[in-house]
Computed example of a mutant assay.
Amino acid sequence: MKKSIASQAFLLGLIAAMAVLFALTVENPSQDMILSGAALGLIALSLVLERLFPLHKDWNEGQGDTAGDLAAFALVFGALDSGLKYLSPFLILALLPDMTQAMAAPLWVQVIAATLVIEFGSWLSHWAHHRYPGLWALHAMHHSTERLYTLNNFRFHPLNHVFNHILAFLPPLALGIAPQALLAYTALSMPVLLLQHSNVRFEFGILNTVFNTNALHRWHHSTAPKEGTKNFGRALILWDQLFGTYYNPAKPTEPASIGLFRTSKAYPKPQNFLRQLAWPFSKSCCAAR
Rank of each mutant, 00 (worst) to 15 (best):
A102V: 10
L182M: 14
P171Y: 04
Q196W: 07
G228V: 11
C286T: 05
F53D: 04
H139R: 08
L188I: 06
Q241C: 12
H129M: 13
K2L: 15
A23Q: 10
S36A: 15
L183V: 09
W59H: 11
F211P: 06
P255D: 02
F154K: 00
W123K: 09
L151A: 11
W59Q: 06
V76K: 04
L49P: 03
A38P: 05
L96H: 07
V200Q: 06
A215P: 01
E119I: 07
W219N: 01
L35V: 07
E61L: 09
N60E: 08
H197M: 05
L93G: 13
H126C: 02
L35M: 13
F163K: 02
M103S: 10
P225K: 06
V76A: 08
F73Y: 11
L274W: 13
L91G: 04
I5D: 05
T229L: 06
K251Y: 00
L96G: 04
T66Y: 00
P225E: 07
L260N: 01
T25D: 02
L182G: 13
N28H: 14
V76R: 04
L14P: 09
D69A: 15
A114T: 02
L148S: 00
I166L: 13
V200G: 03
T253S: 13
R131H: 14
L260A: 04
I43P: 00
L148H: 03
A128T: 04
T66F: 07
A256T: 15
A287L: 13
A128L: 15
K265E: 15
H165V: 09
K2C: 01
A79S: 09
S222M: 06
K2G: 05
T115G: 05
S46M: 10
I5S: 07
M99C: 10
N199F: 12
L49F: 05
P270W: 03
A72S: 15
H165C: 04
N208D: 13
I43A: 02
V26S: 10
T150C: 10
L95M: 11
T209S: 14
K57N: 10
D58H: 11
L182S: 11
L242V: 15
V109I: 12
T229Q: 11
R51N: 11
A174Q: 10
D58E: 14
Y86S: 10
A23E: 09
S4N: 12
T213V: 07
D240T: 12
A44S: 12
V76L: 05
L42C: 09
F120W: 01
S30M: 12
T245P: 06
D240L: 10
W123H: 12
A72M: 12
T25S: 13
